[in-house]
Design a protein around this nucleic acid. Structure first.
Length: 646
RNA sequence: GCCGAUGUAACUCAGUUGGUAGAGUAGCUGAUUUGUAAUCAGCCUGUCGGGGGUUCGAGUCCCUUCAUCGGCUCCA
């Protein structure tokens, strides 16, 4: 007999060699019906694997992330199985589970494939699922694996096997389909009750654009039909928060083909919103000792040759601007750092001058590939809330942490609680992509890791994601449909100061090299506003919203008094407008609700007699009547409650 | 840039097998003067993304190009 320990700490005895499925059955039939896989001693595995010694056991269902992952991973095999049946001879790449569903990369050879094929593939998948085709693991030697795929003629699988070590290779058989796979998997295809193939995309083999592009089929599957319907419903809801749709509806920004793709135009309401965000940050930065500067939108090409950007990105940038006078070349600035370095160099600096913090809302222009453009989140002209901190080496950590504080203030004020922090280090195996000495890189990377540790910030470390001149700490926030976008960023840079030969005179009267910190708490105004729109669904916090109220006169008779009320509210530091149309009050309320105006102020005979106004909150209904002063106080208190003290 | 899809009025969308375009909303005009989510009537609105082709005839078919959407690659 062996002892099985369950997550709640309880221990039960079972015969040696018992399977997780048998354990589940011993507990309850219902549980046995719902479990998908099991975690034995911390490792996810199939339900049919025997447990030979004392172990901890967690039975995983659809409600566990790892249960879902296994479910979707098996669904990827189910997809491949169906496709191999319908399109004999196609070649398979990788087919993993992803955050929401699964995909399989497939070389369809000469088969013309489009989303029109989805229904019949889905049908085939459900057929195989209903047949409860078993999925079985088997260990194979490297040679067996090579022989199998050589015989089958699957070049991608063959290449993959070649990279694997003998003794670690396993196959999964399901019906007529056999796949190279680490697993784990469901016991059979049976639990898959609903399948939806979502889209078709090109994907380079092994993610390398020099390789052949395979066809990636994305899908999602569920153990119940109802779950699929709910998922599709959820996607529909998310679409309503799409910043591109809301940006149009709320008249925040626009694009125009003649102006150019990826070049956003901020409309009056969007501009107001953005300026309010900028003012908010400017105040914080003033408190933290930043100085604001303004630099031109173009700069001599040599700036970028010196910085190294020309070497790294020159070929993929907007072409240089030339002048009638020969020999002059300027670039639309793709970043602000070189200009700021010139400000630093403008006069000799003393160690007493440092840290020197130079901030600018700097609009930059980058030639993004056409397929990359995406609403306001990926554009060709955008404004960074940029700043560069020039400091002594001994000040790096403290300055870095202060920037983290600023980002924290901003994210809190806008309720971005669910951000993910990422430390991006260089790829130690390919240092050719980077400039600067190993020593500088090590110092910079260490500074970031230590700062995160001291601040207690849990950050995911990604190698190979650093900028070419230095490592960085990024703050990622998800959009309405779950895509991650980098917003705030902090970068430590020992290299540009060297390239621009920046110096300061130390207390020892010797020349020293400062360290540079690049940082942008919003990241870019465009992307930040885009994500903010999707988070709030267009219902911005009161301190930020373009219109805090709309006055709704009950009839035309009260328009003059409405104007008086607006003056009063102006004096109380509130902003809003009047609905002067000759419409019934019900109509005005409906339209104001649709426009997401936070407060509706209804003004008629009753209010005029009382010297009050009737207040209605968007989405919440009538709050009763109050004086304009009381209304202003209510708004003020609400704004104060979300503001972070610094 | 690559793969797949989409593009019809300001917006959301309809338009059968090819027979020269419709609805709702918005807008305009008039009537109504309104009390907490749509007052009524009338009017206006189109290079059917652009260019080329097939055809007696193209929003519908073909080619090409542009933009957008979902991915891949990229993201200083």
């Amino acid at each position: 007999m062996i002892n099985i320990t369950f997550p709640d700490g309880s221990v039960r005895q079972y015969p040696k060699g018992v399977t997780s499925m048998e354990v589940a059955k011993s507990i309850s039939e219902g549980l046995a019906r719902n479990i998908l896989c099991a975690k034995v001693n911390g490792k996810v595995t199939e339900l049919y694997n025997p447990i030979e010694e004392d172990a901890t056991l967690q039975l995983l269902t659809w409600n566990d992330d790892e249960g879902k992952e296994t479910f979707w991973h098996t669904s990827a095999h189910l997809l491949a199985d169906a496709i191999e049946t319908l399109y004999p001879g196609v070649k398979f790449g990788f087919g993993p589970a992803i955050e929401n569903g699964f995909y399989y990369d497939i070389d369809f050879l000469d088969y013309p494939v489009s989303s029109d094929d989805f229904p019949q593939i889905e049908k085939k998948m459900l057929e195989l699922a209903q047949a409860k085709i078993p999925v079985r693991r088997r260990e194979v030697t490297k040679q067996e694996a090579l022989d199998y795929f050589a015989k089958k003629g699957d070049p991608y699988k063959l290449e993959h096997v070649n990279d694997l070590e003998d003794g670690t290779i396993s196959f999964y058989d399901s019906g007529t389909f056999t796949d190279l796979c680490r697993g784990p998997h469901l016991t059979d295809f049976g639990p898959v009750k609903a399948v939806k193939l979502t889209n078709l995309a090109g994907a380079y083999w092994r993610g390398d654009e020099h390789n052949k592009q395979l066809t990636r089929v994305y899908g999602i599957s569920f153990p119940k039909k109802k779950d699929l319907d709910e998922y599709l419903e959820m996607l529909e809801e998310a679409k309503k928060r799409d910043h591109r749709k809301l940006g149009k509806e709320l008249e925040l920004f626009m694009f125009n083909d003649t102006v150019g793709k990826g070049l956003p135009i901020w409309l009056p309401k969007g501009t107001e919103l953005r300026l309010r965000l900028q003012d908010f940050l400017t105040k914080i930065q003033k408190h933290y000792g930043y100085q604001q500067v303004i630099t031109p939108h173009i700069g001599g090409k040599q700036l970028y040759v010196t910085s190294g950007h020309w070497d790294h990105y020159g070929a993929d940038s907007f072409r240089p601007i030339t002048t009638p006078e020969e020999g002059e070349e300027y670039l639309l600035k793709p970043m602000n750092c070189p200009h700021h370095c010139m400000i630093y160099k403008n006069e000799p600096r003393s160690y007493k001058d440092l840290p020197m913090r130079i901030a600018e809302y700097g609009t930059v222009y980058r030639y993004e590939q056409s397929g990359e453009l995406h609403g306001l989140t990926r554009v060709r002209s955008f404004t960074q809330d940029d700043a560069h901190i020039f400091c002594r080496p001994d000040q790096v950590k403290e300055e870095f942490e202060k920037v983290m504080d600023i980002i924290n203030i901003i994210f809190k004020a806008l309720s971005f609680q669910n951000f993910e922090a990422q430390i991006s280090l260089r790829d130690p195996n390919d240092t050719s992509k980077y400039v600067g000495s190993d020593e500088n890189w090590n110092k910079a990377e260490q500074a970031i890791v230590e700062a995160c540790k001291e601040k207690g910030l849990k950050a995911k470390v990604e190698t190979g994601e650093a900028a070419f001149y230095g490592p960085k700490l990024d703050f990622m926030v998800r959009d309405a449909i779950g895509r991650k976008w980098q917003l705030g960023t902090i970068q430590v840079d020992y290299n540009l100061p060297e390239r621009f030969e920046l110096e300061y005179i130390g207390s020892d009267n010797q020349k020293h090299r400062p360290v540079m910190i690049h940082r942008a708490p919003f990241g870019s105004m465009e992307r930040f506003v885009a994500v903010l729109i999707e988070h709030t669904g267009g219902k911005f916090p009161l301190w930020l919203t373009p219109e805090q109220y709309i006055i709704l006169p009950v009839s035309d008779k009260y328009i003059d008094q409405a104007k008086e009320l607006q003056h009063t509210l102006n004096d109380l530091n509130l902003r809003g407008s009047i609905d002067e149309r000759s419409e019934k009050i019900g109509r005005k309320i409906r339209d104001a609700e649709m426009k997401k105006a936070p407060f509706m102020l209804i003004l008629g005979e009753k209010e005029l007699n009382e010297g009050t106004v009737s207040v209605r909150r968007q989405g919440a209904g009538d709050l009763g009547s109050m004086t304009p002063q009381a209304f202003a106080k209510m708004i003020e208190e609400e704004i104060d409650s979300v503001m972070v003290k610094y």
